[in-house]
Design a binder for these strands. Sequence first.
DNA 1: CTTCACTTAGTGATCGATCACTTCGCTGGG
DNA 2: CCCAGCGAAGTGATCGATCACTAAGTGAAG
Lengths: 335, 335
Amino acid sequence: MTDTASHRRPTIMEVARLAEVSHQTVSRYFRAPDGLKPATKARVQAAVDQLNYRPNLVARSMRTRRTGRLAVVVPTLAYSPARMLAGASAAAHAAGYALEVLALEGGAEERTERVAELADSGQVDGIVSFAPVLASLELQASSGTPIVASADFDDEMRGIGELADASALVDLIRGLAERGHRRFLHITGDLQFASARARRDTYLETVASLGLESTGVIEGDWSAESGMAAVRGLPEHDRATAVMAANDLVAAGAIRAAMDRGWRVPDDLSVTGWDDQQLGRLMSPALTSVEVDLEGLGSRAMTRLITALRGERAPTEAQQIHRVIWRESTGPAPD
Amino acid sequence: MTDTASHRRPTIMEVARLAEVSHQTVSRYFRAPDGLKPATKARVQAAVDQLNYRPNLVARSMRTRRTGRLAVVVPTLAYSPARMLAGASAAAHAAGYALEVLALEGGAEERTERVAELADSGQVDGIVSFAPVLASLELQASSGTPIVASADFDDEMRGIGELADASALVDLIRGLAERGHRRFLHITGDLQFASARARRDTYLETVASLGLESTGVIEGDWSAESGMAAVRGLPEHDRATAVMAANDLVAAGAIRAAMDRGWRVPDDLSVTGWDDQQLGRLMSPALTSVEVDLEGLGSRAMTRLITALRGERAPTEAQQIHRVIWRESTGPAPD
DNA sequence: CTTCACTTAGTGATCGATCACTTCGCTGGG
DNA sequence: CCCAGCGAAGTGATCGATCACTAAGTGAAG
C-alpha cells in the first residue's frame, strides 16, 4: 500500500524507470527471462515486486494479435451439460489456453451472427460451438479465427451430430429381443430435436430389420408427463411388452404410470431410458439406460479446435460415446 | 469476397479511406451515429458494409479501459450447477455485459491467485466468484476491478454462505413432528463441505430445541452408497421413524436399502432428501425434498457485481432460496 | 591490437481504436 | 458586411504492450 499516489495500475514504463532499464528489457523479462543478465533480471524482478506489476493482457493481445483464450458457445446455460464443458475445459487447459464459456440465447441465425461478432472481435483465438451455427461460418476465415462448430446440439441443447447417433437403440432392441420381447413401443422426445428424430427413426428401422413388431410410436416431449400419458393410453391387452423411452425422465414417467395401472416392471413391462441420470439407478426398479460420454465429446471438440489453431489437420476418428447399461427395469418378456 | 488481396481484417483507417472521411468520423459512426450528417453516415455505412468491417474490441478496450465483459469463476465445471450460471448470465446480459465463465481448478489459494491475475489483466470489468477466494481479495481495488466473491460454494461446489443456509431443515423436522415423528436420524454429506456441516448442526439443534430425539448422526459422503450403508446398519427395532438425508442421492440410497429390508416407505420409515432433483419426484415413493433457487442465487450475485460497477451500494436483502416440497416419501409416523 | 561473432540492452515504430482539441463551414444578428 | 455561435468533421496524441532494428559491451581467435 505504498503507492497511495497513483490509483492506476503500473505500466511497463514505470517498472522500467524504477529498475533503471528500458521498457523493452522489462518486456523481455516476461517473455524470455533467460536472455537477461542475472543482475539485470534481479533489478527488474525487484521493481516488478515493489510495484506489484502485472502485464496488461489487453495491450499484449493487441500487439501480438493473440489472446490465449478460446471460447465455447452453448445455446443456453439452462440445459448445458456441465460434464461436457468439463471435458472441453480440461483439453483447453492442457494446451495452455484459458477457456471462456459463452451462453448465447436465441435461434441459429441470431447465434451465428453473434459468433461471427465474437470471432471478429479479436477477443478469442478460436471458438468451439456446441450450438449449431450456420454452416457458412465454419472454417470461414474471414477474421482468421478458427471456428469449430460441433454440431452436436440443436437449439435446446439436445443432441444432433455425434450425440444424435442413436445406434445404442439397436443394442437395446437386440438385447430385449434376446430376452424374448417381440412387441415394442417407442415414446419419443420432442420431435423438433434432431436426437429425438434420430431415435425414432433408428427404432423403426431396427424393429423392422429384426423382424419384430412395433405397436406404435407415441410422440412425447422429453417430460415425465408425456411418458405417463403414453402408458396411460395403452390398451389392457395385446400391448407392447417393452417400452423404449426417449430419455430417463420419460421412462420414469412411463414406469410410474405402469405401476399405477397395476403392471409390474419388468415382469409385465420392460422400460428403457436414455442419459443414465444418477438417480435412475436408484429407482425401483433401477432404470436400464444409455450412458453418454459427454466429457469425451467436449474434449474431442476442443482438441479439434486446438489442432486447427496449430494448422494441423486432425484425423476425425469416430468414437463410441454411447453404452447401454442394463438394470432392473428390463427383463424377460412375459409369456 | 472482393478483398482477395488483404488477408487481414479491415481497420478503421481503411474504412475511412474508402468512405473518404477521417477515421474519427468512422469511430463516431459506431459510438454516436446521431451526431453525423445523414449523407456522411450513409457513406460510412456503405464502406463498412463493403469491407465487412467490425471494430476490433481489443483495441477499443485498450483505449477505453473498459471491456464490457464480466467473469464468473466456478471451482470446477464438473459440479457446477448450470442453473446458477443461467441466472447470472441473464442478469449480466440484461445489463449489457457479455459473460465469461471461468473454471478454475485447484484450491482456494491457487484460485485466489488466478482470480487476481484475471482482475489485473484488464480483460474483464468485474468478477463474480462462486468459488471462495481469500477474503483479502474481495473489494480490494488494487486493479480497480471489482470482485464479488459469492462465497456460496466451497471447493467442490457445495454450498456455503447463502447455500449453506440449512434452515429448511427446521421446516422439514417441524413438518415431520406434526406428522407424529419423534425419533430422527440424519445421514450427512461429506463433512468437508460447509453445507454438510450446516445441515448436521441445524439438525441437531432443531431436534434438541423441539424436544425430539435423535437416534444418531451417520456420516456419509453425498453418495447413494452411503445412504444405503447407513440404513443397512440400523437396528430392527427401536429405530428412528424419519431419516433426513443430506441430499437426494443419499435419500434414494436410504429408501432402496429400507425396501431391501422389507420396510415400507413412508409407512415404516419416512425419508427426506435435498436438492429436488428431477427424477426424485418420479421415484416410488416420490421423494420429499428441498428445492433450491439456484437461478436466484446466480442472478443476485451478478446484480451485486453490476451495482458495484456502477458505484452504487446495493442493499443486501436476504432472500428465501430454499423451499420444502412434501411428497410421498414422508408420511405419518408408525404407531 | 584488431577483428569478428555473440550476447545484452536501448530506440522508435506499431497494433487499432478513442479522446481532447482544433478547424471548417454555415447561419443569422447587429 | 463582419463576426459570434454552433454543429460537423479532422488532426494528432494516447492507451500499454511487443516487434524490428540498432548500438554497445564482451571475449576469443587471428
